[in-house]
């Protein structure tokens, strides 16, 4: 990672196609991954993410299109490309009857490490995985989360320029998942570029600087998480629950800059006079558990302090404040009409 040039194009994928018979698993994907970023490939199972990264990592040959990594063509300079890559496959690609130490030594040797450097990198990888104290135990005795962590450790020992992680948190406990996500953040801080595929939008949102949303072998949207969310609509919802509503406060809020609308919500009263009612129909005076004001804004970060200030000055007792943003799930839903987990 010595020749890292943050911001420079590290991976350039152009019109990438992979067909299996009549079926196009990847159908004209183009994208660029910049040095130093965490780039996410988000899409449901079967979207073509694994096929795409299999071509980027020289495992399978494309039917069409080109891929370069660090300026080297996957088709013509595969050995140079492979040296720059670290791979963490979706499967636990380890030898279960070997210890973690033996597995890491083996994979280190596959990347050309040997001698003192190999031992140093193995120790470093074990430390990163948080499993140094269990290094001499067979991998088959590990929990799913521990296996996943060693699976990652095996891919980072040679300090790759680009770490490709394919669904690295599938089927593990929350604690191991958090450990893995923090590890990815830490590796990225050290300068490692990461290509991260997942169908968990929370992970992608948490980790990735930029995201390509993939469906049916195509990139249907690409950009930062913020840019993608704006495809749905760029207004955030600032939700404030207060004990009671002072007079004139609604008008004061509507006068704030960058506020598009203000609405008042009270807890739903299921019946009034024997008839079902909507909360908007209910008088604030009828609210016994506080009321909620929702403020729509294109710049919620700037507005939220003003909203709370207006309410405070009006004498309202603020119980809770929440800002709801559009998320990638809603982006995917918006673009494809289906859920990520469909």
């Amino acid at each position: 990672m010595s020749d890292v040039r943050p911001g420079a194009d590290l991976v350039v994928v152009t019109d990438l196609v992979k067909r299996f018979g009549q079926n196009a698993a990847v159908d004209g994907v183009s994208l660029t991954i910049r040095e130093g970023e965490v780039f996410g490939l988000l899409g449901p199972n079967g979207a073509g993410k694994t096929t795409a990264i299999s071509m980027i990592s020289c495992l399978i040959a494309p039917t069409g299109g080109t891929v370069t990594v660090g300026g080297f063509s996957v088709a013509n300079d595969a050995s140079k490309v492979k040296k720059a890559l670290g791979i963490v496959p979706q499967e636990i690609a380890l030898y279960p009857t070997l210890t973690a130490l033996e597995n890491l030594r083996f994979w280190g040797r596959m990347y050309g490490l040997s001698g003192a450097l190999l031992e140093e990198r193995v120790a470093e990888a074990l430390e990163t995985a948080g499993l140094a104290d269990r290094a001499k135990e067979r991998v088959e005795t590990y929990s799913g989360g521990m296996k996943r962590r060693i699976n990652i450790a095996a891919g980072i020992m040679h300090h790759p320029r680009l770490l490709i992680m394919d669904e690295p948190t599938v089927g593990i406990d929350p604690q191991s998942r958090n450990h893995i996500l923090e590890t990815v953040k830490e590796l990225n801080k050290r300068g490692m570029t990461v290509l991260y595929t997942s169908h968990y939008m929370e992970e992608v949102e948490f980790l990735c600087d930029r995201v390509a949303i993939v469906d049916h072998g195509r990139v249907i949207a690409c950009g930062t998480v913020e840019q993608l969310k704006r495809l749905v609509g760029d207004e955030n919802v600032i939700s404030v629950r207060i004990a009671s509503i002072p007079d004139g406060v609604m008008e004061s809020l509507r006068e704030l800059t960058a506020v598009d609308s203000v609405t008042l919500h009270v807890p739903l009263l299921k019946e009034r006079d024997g008839e079902p009612v909507q909360d908007s129909d209910v008088s604030p005076a009828g609210a016994g558990e506080g009321v909620t004001i929702e403020v729509l804004s294109r710049d919620s970060g700037a507005v939220i302090a003003d909203v709370v200030g207006v309410l405070g000055r009006a004498g309202a007792h603020v119980l809770a404040v929440d800002v709801r943003e559009p998320n990638l799930e809603s982006v995917f839903l918006h673009l494809t009409g289906t859920s990520l987990r469909d």
Binding site: S54, S57, C58, L59, S79, K82, K83, L85, I87, P89, A93, L94, Y95, W107, M110, Y111, G112
Partner: peptide
């Protein structure tokens, strides 16, 4: 593990 080996140098 075989595909993983193929993705090494």
């Amino acid at each position: 593990t075989l595909p993983r080996m193929l993705m090494t140098p």
